[in-house]
C-alpha cells in the first residue's frame, strides 16, 4: 500500500462525502427546523439525475443540463411542499414517514411511466471524460475533480449563507428553537419554504453530478437516502456544519472500508473467506461509525438544538 494509493482513496472518499453533504444539508435543515421527516428527499435527487441526463442527451450542454435539473426540481419541490408536505407539519413523525414514503412510491412509478423501467445512461461531458495528471504517478479522473470542486464551492456558499446573512440567521434561529423564533416575530413557515426549495436544489445538483458516475435508475434515491440519514444523525440534526463534517467522515470511512479492508483481510485470511467477509464488513463500516459517535455524543457531533 503506497502513498499514491492512499492519496487516491482519500480523494475518492472526499468526493463521495461532498456529494452526500449536498443531499444531507437539505435533509438536516428540513428536519431541524420543522421537525419534519422527509423521506422523499431521495426522490428529488432522482428527479435531478433524470432531468439532467435527459437534457444533456438532448442539448449536449452539461452546464445547461445541471441548471435545468435544478430549476425543474425546485419547481417540483415547491408543488410538493404546497400540496402535501405543508399538511404534514402538525402531524407526528410516523404520519410524516408514511406519507413521504408514499411519495417515494409515486415518484418511482412516475419516473417509470415517463422514462421506462430501464436505467438511463448518463454520460460525462466529453471534455472531462479523460484523466488529469495530478501527481507524477497519479492520473485522476477530471470529472471527479469537478465533483470535488463543486462540492467544496457549495459547502463554502452554504457556510456564508447560513452564518453571515439575515436569512441564514433566521434559519439557524428556527433550527435551534422554533417556538422562540416564532414569538420573536420570525415567520418560520416562510423560512421553511425557502429551506425546502434550497434542499431540493442541492439534491438536484447532487443527482445531476452523480448521474454520470452512478446509474440513473429508479430507486437511486432510496439507495443514497440511507447514507444521507446516517450523515445527519452523526452530524447532529439541524446542523449544516455537523452534516459537512459527518458527510466527509462517512465518505472516507466507506471508501476506506472498500479499499483497505479487503487487501488487509486477504493478508490474514484464506482468499475465499476474505472475499466474503471484506465487502460485508465494508458495508457496515459506516454504521459502526454511527454507533460509536452515538455512544459518545448521543445528540450527534454538533447538535443544533441547545
Amino acid at each position: 500500500m503506497d502513498a499514491i494509493f492512499i492519496i487516491e482513496q482519500i480523494l475518492n472518499g472526499l468526493g463521495y462525502g461532498l456529494m452526500l453533504f449536498l443531499l444531507a444539508a437539505g435533509l438536516t435543515l428540513v428536519f431541524g427546523i420543522m421537525d419534519t421527516m422527509n423521506l422523499a428527499h431521495g426522490s428529488l435527487y432522482m428527479a435531478g439525475a433524470y432531468i439532467a441526463a435527459q437534457v444533456h442527451q438532448a442539448s449536449g450542454s452539461f452546464v445547461g443540463a445541471v441548471l435545468a435539473a435544478i430549476a425543474a426540481t425546485v419547481l417540483v419541490s415547491w408543488l410538493l411542499e404546497i400540496l402535501i408536505v405543508r399538511r404534514l407539519y402538525p402531524r407526528d413523525h410516523l404520519a410524516q414517514v408514511i406519507a413521504t414514503f408514499g411519495i417515494i412510491l409515486i415518484a418511482d412509478d412516475g419516473v417509470k411511466a415517463l422514462w421506462g423501467p430501464s436505467p438511463l445512461l448518463a454520460s460525462m461531458p466529453t471534455a472531462l471524460a479523460g484523466p488529469v495528471q495530478l501527481l507524477a504517478e497519479l492520473p485522476y479522473s477530471a470529472y471527479r475533480l469537478l465533483l470535488l470542486g463543486a462540492g467544496l464551492l457549495v459547502a463554502a456558499g452554504l457556510y456564508l449563507l447560513v452564518n453571515h446573512t439575515r436569512i441564514g440567521m433566521l434559519v439557524r434561529a428556527g433550527a435551534s428553537n422554533r417556538a422562540m423564533a416564532e414569538l420573536m416575530g420570525v415567520r418560520v413557515d416562510r423560512v421553511f419554504s425557502f429551506v425546502f426549495a434550497l434542499g431540493a436544489a442541492l439534491a438536484a445538483l447532487a443527482g445531476a453530478l452523480m448521474g454520470p458516475i452512478s446509474a440513473v435508475q429508479i430507486g437511486m434515491g432510496e439507495a443514497i437516502l440511507i447514507p444521507a440519514l446516517v450523515v445527519i444523525v452523526i452530524g447532529g440534526i439541524g446542523s449544516v456544519r455537523g452534516a459537512f463534517i459527518a458527510a466527509l467522515l462517512v465518505g472516507l470511512v466507506d471508501t476506506a472500508g472498500r479499499a483497505f479492508l479487503p487487501p488487509l483481510l486477504r493478508a490474514v485470511l484464506p482468499p475465499a473467506l476474505a472475499a466474503d467477509l471484506g465487502p460485508a464488513l465494508a458495508g457496515i463500516a459506516m454504521y459502526l461509525l454511527m454507533a460509536a459517535v452515538l455512544i459518545l455524543k448521543p445528540a450527534g457531533l454538533f447538535p443544533a438544538r441547545a
Partner: peptide, 21 residues
C-alpha cells in the same frame, strides 16, 4: 488481486485505485 464488488455497484473508484497500485 482478486476483487469482489457488490452486485450492481456503479462507482469503481476504490477498485481502480487498487488496480493502479
Amino acid at each position: 488481486e482478486e476483487i469482489y464488488t457488490k452486485v450492481g455497484q456503479i462507482d469503481y473508484a476504490a477498485e481502480i485505485a487498487q488496480i493502479r497500485a
